[in-house]
Design a protein around this nucleic acid. Structure first.
Lengths: 154, 154
DNA sequence: GCAAATTAATGATTTATTCAAG
DNA sequence: CTTGAATAAATCATTAATTTGC
């Protein structure tokens, strides 16, 4: 007979199994902005949630860590999709040839004046082509740009 | 005559709109330690990033300024929170001054240790009974828990 | 219907960062 | 430059959902 993994009273489970009530409350707290509760908050939440079943402070701590992280993860995936679309369509942003004349008006004398396309410095060498993103790359990720970034990091 | 900030034309946006590729590369450079690039570095970065879209040196300059500043800002807010907690005699972590001399090299110092059944914090007050779920409620919904959640949201 | 097998979710750990204090 | 404190990202591990063949 299997140990009947009851989520409430059994201490034989290797990990916490939140009850539906606990999950409901945690999610509502999250929806209201709780993200990284401090120790005091964790204690409070734990004490209250223990009414609905076994729970420890670390479970609450981990729950918020994981929930937050996986929310961010989902968002990143959405963004990646969007970027993929943009890549295929070759720009949601104006194409703009980079050797276009940028006769930007100079507001009087800020710092950035020295960094625009002025001639205070010799023109930089053109980027080596092998470091540029291959145009057929379909899903640009962090890793797609690593060689390029390595080149810049010198 | 004012410049008429048309957002229509592809070449006259009032401010720089970084492409996802540009952001990704800038963030990676930041993560690798670039904080205040000098003029030469800015020129180099600008030249390379212009492959992915319109960009000027000042954009790179300001991007690092802003990113650095906002990182610090975030950290300051966190520190303020922590100091506030410490003033209330709450400590997220134990004193850990004489941090055991013999304790044979366990992994190191897992977070959750402090949230389990330890007594680093005073025990929380028992939950007020009026906020607890009546035990006979058979179909718990979101609304069943609202008072409880409101209490925790403090 | 029912378990074994497989896949998806999610709890728990570890690793890699961040800034700034020393 | 090194280290403390905190956290986010990446990963590991176990439970739940589901698919599948009978």
């Amino acid at each position: 007979m299997s140990p009947a993994p009851s989520s409430r009273s059994s201490s034989s489970s290797s990990r916490w199994c939140p009850t539906p009530e606990q999950v409901m409350i945690l999610e509502e707290l999250y929806k209201r902005g709780v993200r990284t509760p401090n120790a005091s908050q964790i204690q409070k939440i734990t004490a209250h949630l223990s009414y609905y079943g076994n729970i420890q402070g670390k479970n609450v701590f981990y729950w918020f860590q994981n929930h937050k992280a996986r929310d961010r993860q989902k968002l990143r995936k959405k963004l990646a999709k969007i970027q993929q679309l943009q890549q295929q369509n070759y720009s949601l942003y104006p194409p703009l040839h980079h050797h276009h004349h940028h006769h930007h008006q100079t507001h009087f004398f800020p710092f950035h004046h020295y960094f625009s396309n002025s001639n205070y410095l010799p023109p930089p060498p053109p980027p080596p082509h092998e470091y540029l993103l291959p145009s057929h790359s379909q899903v640009p990720t962090y890793y797609t740009y690593l060689p390029f970034i390595n080149y810049l990091s010198l």
